[in-house]
Computed example of a mutant assay.
Amino acid sequence: MLAAAAALGIDRLDAQLLLLHALGRPGSERAWLLAHDTDTLPDTIREACERLFMRRLAGEPVAYLVGEKEFHGLGLLVDARVLVPRPDTETLVEWALHCLDGRGTPAVLDLGTGSGAIALAIAHARPDARVAAVDASAEALAVARANADRLGLTVRFAQADWLEGADGGLDLIVSNPPYIVAGDPHLAALRHEPLQALVSGADGLDDIRRIVQSAPGHLAPDGWLLLEHGYDQAEAVRQLLAGRGFVQTQSRDDLAGIARCSGGIWPGVK
């Protein structure tokens, strides 16, 4: 089956994960798959695998096809109600955890939580943190709550439009909001994922502007706001932060060395 997938142009890792899924085995068992490379597949498994290959060729993410994605060491349930968590977003989580160093029982809010990836990763790494997460989509929140239950992690979820109704005195607000420009040609490759979680106006910054404008009303003095953004938006986001009064504005690079996240500290009322 792997040779057939290669002939179709399917990435080898993708094909291995899909074959393991068809076999009812976890994606972590790639070594098992290699050890049984010459085994004969039952027709039912072969047919199921072929259907998965065709769906992958049509552009469906592997995570949707197998129903899960690993993020920051956590196995998350995912489907078409939420974006697929990307490895680059782990940069945002690592920065968030660094910002929480030395803060006891910090209050954290994840905006636009989707699958719950960021909030759950923080809750897992900092069990003492009081983590809340919001999303405008009730369907996305259902996925996030299912992940929290599955992982046994405590996060307070709520349906809200960004910071509407959020608590004050937060040590950290973190978000991977929509940031793609409307009409961007790259959207075609993301057609299976929820558009409302991807696109944000003519320059991709509409939602980031709203968050930057509202966040100071909810942050404690010296609280951080951290935002993921597009590959070419770091300078614009830093300018928005500085213009709103944030200090120590800076960016962090993703795994490819691209400035993928920007943030700053709210100094409080001067």
Rank of each mutant, 00 (worst) to 15 (best):
A107R: 15
P106L: 12
A129P: 12
A160T: 01
S137P: 10
T113W: 10
A117R: 03
V134R: 05
A107D: 14
A138S: 13
P127A: 06
A158S: 14
V108D: 08
D128V: 04
E164W: 02
R103K: 15
L153R: 09
V134C: 11
A125N: 11
L100A: 03
G116M: 08
L120F: 09
L100D: 10
A136Y: 02
A146I: 06
G104V: 11
Q159P: 10
T105Q: 15
D135H: 08
I122A: 10
R145M: 13
L151W: 02
A158P: 01
L111P: 07
H124K: 15
A129G: 11
V155H: 00
V134W: 13
L172R: 00
R156V: 13
D149M: 09
A133H: 01
D110W: 09
F157E: 05
L153K: 09
A140C: 07
Q159W: 00
V131C: 12
G114E: 11
A129H: 07
Q159N: 05
A107V: 13
G104A: 14
V108A: 06
R130S: 07
L111K: 05
E139G: 06
R150V: 11
D110Y: 11
D171G: 12
A117K: 10
A119I: 01
P127Y: 07
A148F: 10
D167F: 02
L172K: 04
L163W: 08
A146Q: 14
A136H: 08
T154F: 12
D101Y: 06
D101L: 05
L100I: 09
A160G: 13
D171P: 12
L120Y: 09
D128Q: 04
D167S: 15
T154S: 15
E164Q: 14
G165V: 04
I122V: 15
G112I: 04
A142W: 07
T105W: 15
Q159K: 14
V155A: 04
A119D: 08
R126A: 10
L163D: 07
P127Q: 04
W162Q: 08
